[in-house]
C-alpha cells in the first residue's frame, strides 16, 4: 500500500491510498498559521493578522488535548450521534405553517419587497 500526502490544506497528513483514512501516527499535532487561515476561510471568519499567532497557538493546544481520543480503542464501535439512538420522526407532508414572512423579515438587516438584500453576486 502506497502512502500519499495531501497538498497544501492543513499541512502534512498521510493517507492510506486505498482506504483514504488518516493513519494515527501521522496526525498533525499542531497547526500552522496558514492552516488556521484556511479553516477560518471555510468557516467564513476573518482573523486579524496580529491575532493569528495567538489563535494558532490556542487552536494547537486544543487539538493536542483532543488527541487523547486516539488512546481509546474504538474498533467495531458504532458512532453515537443521538443519546437515545433516536431516528428522525416524520410527519405527513402537509402545509402546517402559516405565512409569517413579514414577521420573520421584521428583524432582517436589509429587505426589499419581501427579498433579502445582499451585495451584487452576478456582474
Amino acid at each position: 500500500m502506497e502512502n500519499v500526502t495531501t497538498k497544501g490544506f492543513l499541512g502534512k497528513v498521510q493517507y492510506d491510498s486505498v482506504r483514504i483514512l488518516p493513519k494515527c501516527l501521522d496526525y498533525p499535532m499542531s497547526v500552522s498559521p496558514a492552516d488556521v487561515t484556511q479553516v477560518a476561510r471555510l468557516a467564513r471568519l476573518k482573523i486579524p493578522e496580529d491575532a493569528l499567532s495567538d489563535v494558532t497557538d490556542r487552536f494547537s493546544r486544543i487539538l493536542d488535548m483532543v488527541d487523547e481520543l486516539q488512546q481509546v480503542d474504538t474498533q467495531g464501535i458504532e458512532p453515537m450521534s443521538n443519546p437515545h439512538d433516536m431516528v428522525q420522526r416524520l410527519r405527513a407532508d402537509q402545509v402546517t405553517e402559516p405565512d409569517q414572512r413579514a414577521a420573520l423579515q421584521s428583524v432582517s438587516p436589509a429587505v426589499e419587497q419581501g427579498y433579502f438584500l445582499v451585495p451584487r453576486v452576478i456582474d
Partner: peptide
C-alpha cells in the same frame, strides 16, 4: 480528511 479522525472517533468514544 479529518472527519473520521476527530468527529467520527469522538462519536465512537461517546458511545
Amino acid at each position: 480528511g479529518f472527519y473520521d479522525a476527530y468527529f467520527k472517533k469522538a462519536q465512537q468514544v461517546r458511545r
